[in-house]
Simulated assay, not measured.
Amino acid sequence: MRQNVRGTSPWETSVGYSRAVRVGNVVHVAGTTATVNGEVVGVGDPYEQTHVILGIIHNALKEAGAALEDVVRTRIFVTDISHWQEVGRAHGEVFGHIRPAATMVQVAALIDPQHLVEIEAEAIIS
């Protein structure tokens, strides 16, 4: 069984991907940025962008029948690693009690220069 979860990203159709895909009890959430209805939210604020992103991920997980507590892995991509504490603080506010395996790396750029953070998540529904 495969369930594709659609989001609001303007790139999903043109690039050919889903916000999340559930197969069996596993949910993979695509790289998610702070883009809501085509507009970047939290411009210049990595903490706010991280919170927006995690909210989008949370909604995608719910639509796929999962919860934040089911997340076992996150991958965090930042355009400036010096913002790691702000991004990490926002991540910790959501996942501090869940504590998924996590990675944070700096990348050269994201799809929009206003994006400071992009996050992927994987969940296993028990």
Rank of each mutant, 00 (worst) to 15 (best):
V107P: 08
A109L: 07
G55C: 05
E63S: 10
N59H: 13
Y17F: 10
I53N: 00
E69K: 13
K62H: 09
L116M: 13
I57Q: 06
A64I: 07
Q85E: 15
E118R: 06
E69F: 00
E86G: 08
K62N: 11
A64C: 03
V29E: 01
G65M: 00
G38R: 06
V105Q: 09
G55D: 06
N37R: 07
E39M: 11
Q49W: 05
G92N: 11
E48Y: 04
V41D: 05
A66E: 08
T74P: 03
T50N: 08
H91G: 03
E69I: 10
V107A: 08
I111M: 15
V23P: 07
T13H: 07
D112G: 03
R73H: 15
V117R: 03
L110G: 03
T103I: 14
A66T: 12
G16D: 09
L61V: 06
I81G: 01
V27I: 14
R22N: 03
L116R: 09
D80Y: 15
Q49K: 08
N25R: 14
V117M: 06
S9M: 01
A102G: 11
A60L: 02
T74Y: 01
I76A: 05
A123I: 13
I53H: 01
I124Y: 13
G31S: 07
G38P: 15
M104E: 04
N59W: 14
V107G: 08
I111K: 06
R89T: 10
R73N: 12
V21R: 04
G24L: 04
M104R: 05
N4P: 10
E39L: 10
D80S: 10
V26D: 12
V26A: 12
V29K: 02
R19F: 05
Q3F: 08
